[in-house]
Simulated assay, not measured.
Amino acid sequence: MKNLKTIAIALFVALGTTVANAQTKKIDASKSTINWVGKKVTGEHSGTVNFKDGALVFKGKKVSGGSFTVDMTSLTATDLSGEWKEKLDGHLKADDFFGTDKFKTATLKFTKIADKGNGVYGVTADLTIKGITNPVSFDLTVKGNTATTNFKVDRTKYGIKYNSKSFFESIGDKAIYDDFELAVKLQF
């Protein structure tokens, strides 16, 4: 019984030390960026979407966690202007795509992190879009007070099937590719 108490106290102290060493660094949402590219048979569109909030967690100088919330209502195309921009922005926010009236935010929460050295981390995270959660993997590079990554997301895993050749075989040149690309820069 005495040994059990000693072990319990040692674990408590060890866990307390681990928690005390973790440091949460909130991102500056106004300086952090998410750029997207969606491709289709006949070309592509690009744009931005803004962070609502987020943070990276460090143990010492190494990334040990992270979670982020994206303001999906800020979704906008940057490659168009005028009427065509308004139409695309409206369609992207409609139920065919991200349904931002109902799903105002998307979230990303780190679940596994592997230190690859030189400030590069292999990250697996849970990405939630339109209330549907799936794992995504990417490399995150941390330098000073910035972190960057690029990765692809398969929109069909989140119920976004509009003009997907995977679901509509005879769609021809109106097909939109399932993957969209994200380029993320965090400033903290």
Rank of each mutant, 00 (worst) to 15 (best):
K2L: 13
I27K: 06
I113F: 12
W36S: 02
G38F: 10
K25I: 01
I129S: 00
K157T: 05
T141V: 09
D71C: 11
A114C: 03
F167G: 11
D89F: 14
H45N: 05
K59Q: 08
K52R: 06
G172Y: 00
F68R: 01
D101G: 13
F167T: 13
T33F: 04
K39A: 01
G16W: 15
K31V: 07
T18I: 09
R155N: 08
Y177D: 07
Y162L: 07
N134G: 08
E83C: 13
G38M: 09
K26A: 15
G82F: 09
K40N: 05
V57M: 11
M1K: 15
L127K: 02
T146W: 02
K40R: 09
D126M: 02
T128Y: 01
V49Q: 01
P135D: 05
T100D: 09
D179S: 01
F97K: 00
F68M: 07
V123F: 02
F138S: 11
T149Y: 07
K130C: 09
F180M: 07
K152Y: 14
I34P: 00
L4D: 03
A77E: 11
K157G: 14
K116Y: 09
L88R: 03
G82L: 10
A22L: 14
I171D: 09
K112R: 11
T124Q: 05
Y121M: 06
K31T: 15
N163V: 09
K152N: 12
T133V: 12
V70L: 05
K61V: 14
F167N: 12
T141Y: 08
A14H: 04
V41A: 06
K152T: 08
G99L: 03
K85F: 04
S164Q: 11
V142I: 07
V136I: 15
K25N: 11
S74N: 04
S46H: 11
W84V: 02
K26V: 11
I34C: 02
K174I: 05
S164V: 06
G172R: 04
F12T: 15
T148V: 10
Y162K: 01
K31S: 15
F68G: 00
V70A: 10
L56R: 01
W36L: 04
S170A: 12
A77P: 03
L88G: 13
T133C: 02
K143A: 02
H45I: 05
F138Q: 07
R155H: 14
L140R: 01
T76L: 02
V70N: 01
F188R: 01
L4W: 08
N150A: 07
V63R: 01
F168H: 02
K104T: 11
F151M: 07
Q187V: 15
D173I: 02
L140Y: 04
T156R: 09
F58M: 06
I132A: 11
A183G: 06
V123W: 00
